[in-house]
Design a protein around this nucleic acid. Sequence first.
DNA 1: CCCTGATTCGC
DNA 2: GCGAATCAGG
Length: 242
Amino acid sequence: MTMSWTDERIDTLRRMWEAGQTASQIAEELGGVSRNAVIGKAHRLGLQSRPSPVKPNEPAAAKAAAAPPAPKPAAPVAAAPVAAPPRPPVERVIPPVVVAAAPPAVEIEDDVEDDTEVEADAPVAPPRPAPPILRSVGPGGFLRQAPGEQQAPITPAPPRRLVPAKPSADMAGKTTLLDLNDKICKWPIGHPGEPDFHFCGEKVNPGFPYCVGHCGHAYQAQLPRRDRRPPPPLPFGGPRAR
DNA sequence: CCCTGATTCGC
DNA sequence: GCGAATCAGG
């Protein structure tokens, strides 16, 4: 059974294509198809072929950092600030459906619907009253961060060293690794290996490894998981040697 | 080289 | 209809 263009896959293709994702990205997302297949299909679908002569995408922005300006010694030329061309709405666009993560079998209310579709800009922007931030409430009563609030998917505490905290005077009253049990919040404070690394220690939100407060951080209104794949930080900084 | 999308054309 | 091969531009 070969990969076929099911309605769902076509829909994903269409939406990603229209969203400005590159054929490669789409192909990768769909899986089982090549970049060419995506392009071919897109055309057959009559999808609008945007500026064909390639246009830098997200990857460019990502790699941009790797290409810092190499100033030429003799260049009296006024550094013309490159006017950013119409960098339109090509944002992170997620193809699949938005699903809310539902940890345990508990009723969940999820009405986070923040359509922030701001047009270019209103001539006279009336003082936006009060940002109606809608948060969903998770089991135990923790508030999920609304998608709009999810600045950076905060990482609890990326380990830096593989060194266990040693008991010391500083740790007096702190919840250490040895103090962990099923009833106390395991939210890490600080980083492993650091002198005062410890855990929250609050009473857990029943059924969760964290207290109610930290559950709010740990369980956020779910963004589509199909996002780009920037996940696993290298176990250890092993820049691939050539 | 890398990347991009467009097009062709045998299947 | 499909997509590898090819072409063409950045």
